[in-house]
Every structure is written in structure tokens, then in C-alpha cells.
């Protein structure tokens, strides 16, 4: 067993510095690497490029990095829940690249899987495809989209072990598995770090080979963005 376990978030983030590119898992506030984000806020490194489906809300998730003006560029598919984000985007302080959600996932996966680029039909004929190579396959048009290149991927799983094996829960899975191994260093934080051998190899979502460092997060707030319920009849 190759040991990936590190004692805490500070060690897990060793090597992060200004002007780096990060992948961050999560959809909305679900499955975001809360502890890594908190540490990035503490370190206050600047000029970051963040690849993340969303940009958090004003006071949580990636919104915390935006508040401190640590982010130079966001690559996302939907950023509608964050006033500070909108302000920085409109004043030009923040560079924003909006791309289709499936393209975002596949550019992460391409980086993980060793593909330099992929062809997707998404965005063909729209401003998203402007300046990009297009090609026809079987009578349909596709856009060439390149694999991301990132320094760190920060992902969050439900359970993991020191070998770096990960299991996700519910829709908190989202982009997290696709980002593992897509950057030079993948840092996984888990709610529960279990002894090696406790996870059933049949049930593992991401094998440890895609993960360089793993730690158990201290706290998980797991904030709910839209609390919707039905009435008991």
C-alpha cells in the first residue's frame, strides 16, 4: 500500500502559490472541498485561476476566495448565485470563461485520461465556439475543446483510506471524480478516513492511483443552497 495520508490540511496544501491553476470539485455548495478552500483563504495566495462548475455564494465556498480578491480567472458553467462575483465580473476585475457544464466535465476527464482534447457538439454555432476548431463527423458539427492543465485538483469525498481510494455520497459526487488525477497534484479531503482494508474494493469510485494526498477534513458545514420540502399530507 502506498501511503497518501497527510496529517492535516496545511500539509495537504504544501506547494500552492500565487498564479496557480486549481480544479475544485462540487456542484453548487454540494461536495465542495470546504477545508481546502478555508486553507486557501488563510494562505491568501493571489492571482488564481479556478476551474469549478460554480463560484459559491457570497459567504461560502469559492465566494470566500472572491471576497479576498484571490481569484484572477474563473472557468465555470454557471455563476448565478454570487453578487460579489457579478460585481467583479462587470468591473473587469475578474476574468470569466463560461463553458457548457458537460464540456467542463469532459475537459477535466480528458486531463485525467490523457486526451489532449475532445470533440463535443455542445456550443456549436454559439459564441462558446468562436475561434475554436470545428469538424464534421457523420453530418454533425463538433467543437474541439482542450483538456485542462492544472497545478492542483481539490476534491471532496465521503469516505477514503490512506491508499487514496475514494467513495462519494449522493450528488456530492458531481465533478469530484472527474478531477482526480487531472492536475499535477490531487488533494482529496474526506469526511471519514477509514483504516486501509475497510473499504470494499468493489465499491470504490476512484482508485488511489489518481490521488496524491488525502486527509480527513476537520469540519463540514455542508450548507444547503435551496432548502425545498413537501408538506406531510
Amino acid at each position: 500500500m502506498i501511503n497518501k495520508k497527510v496529517a492535516n490540511v496545511a500539509i495537504a496544501l504544501d506547494g500552492v502559490s500565487d498564479n496557480m491553476t486549481f480544479m475544485l470539485g462540487g456542484f453548487g455548495l454540494s461536495g465542495i472541498p470546504e477545508n481546502a478552500i478555508a486553507e486557501l483563504v488563510k494562505l491568501n495566495i493571489k492571482g488564481l485561476t479556478c476551474i469549478s462548475n460554480n463560484a459559491g455564494v457570497d459567504d461560502f465556498g469559492l465566494g470566500l476566495l472572491l471576497q479576498q480578491k484571490q481569484v484572477k480567472k474563473m472557468i465555470s458553467s454557471y455563476v448565478g448565485e454570487n453578487d460579489e462575483f457579478e460585481r467583479q465580473m462587470l468591473t473587469g476585475e475578474l476574468d470569466v470563461e463560461l463553458i457548457p457544464q458537460g464540456t467542463l466535465a469532459e475537459r477535466c476527464r480528458a486531463a485525467q485520461a490523457g486526451f489532449p482534447a475532445i470533440y463535443t457538439p455542445a456550443g456549436y454555432g454559439t459564441e462558446v465556439a468562436e475561434g475554436k476548431e470545428t469538424r464534421e463527423f457523420d453530418g454533425k458539427m463538433y467543437v474541439l475543446e482542450h483538456a485542462f492543465k492544472a497545478d492542483f485538483a481539490f476534491v471532496k469525498a465521503w469516505k477514503g483510506d490512506a491508499a487514496g481510494n475514494l467513495i462519494f455520497k449522493g450528488t456530492a459526487r458531481n465533478f469530484n471524480p472527474n478531477m482526480c488525477g487531472g492536475a499535477k497534484i490531487t488533494v482529496a479531503e474526506v469526511e471519514e478516513l477509514v483504516p486501509v482494508g475497510d473499504l470494499d474494493p468493489n465499491q470504490i469510485h476512484i482508485p488511489g492511483i489518481f490521488v496524491q494526498r488525502i486527509f480527513q477534513g476537520e469540519i463540514y458545514e455542508k450548507r444547503i443552497e435551496q432548502r425545498t420540502v413537501r408538506q406531510r399530507s
Binding site: 453548487g28 448565485e81 435551496q226
Partner: peptide, 26 residues
Amino acid sequence: KEDADIINAGKQTITTLPGASFFDSA
């Protein structure tokens, strides 16, 4: 019964029915 780990694309808390599955974005 809301669960922060079980939401829909509108970020609303949801439930799943028997036979449901979860998967990654790709």
C-alpha cells in the same frame, strides 16, 4: 429529511425513488 448531499440541478433538496442511481458529471 433534507440532505445537503442529495440535490437537483436547481440546487434544491430532493429525494430519490427505488431504482435510483448517482453518478459523476462526465
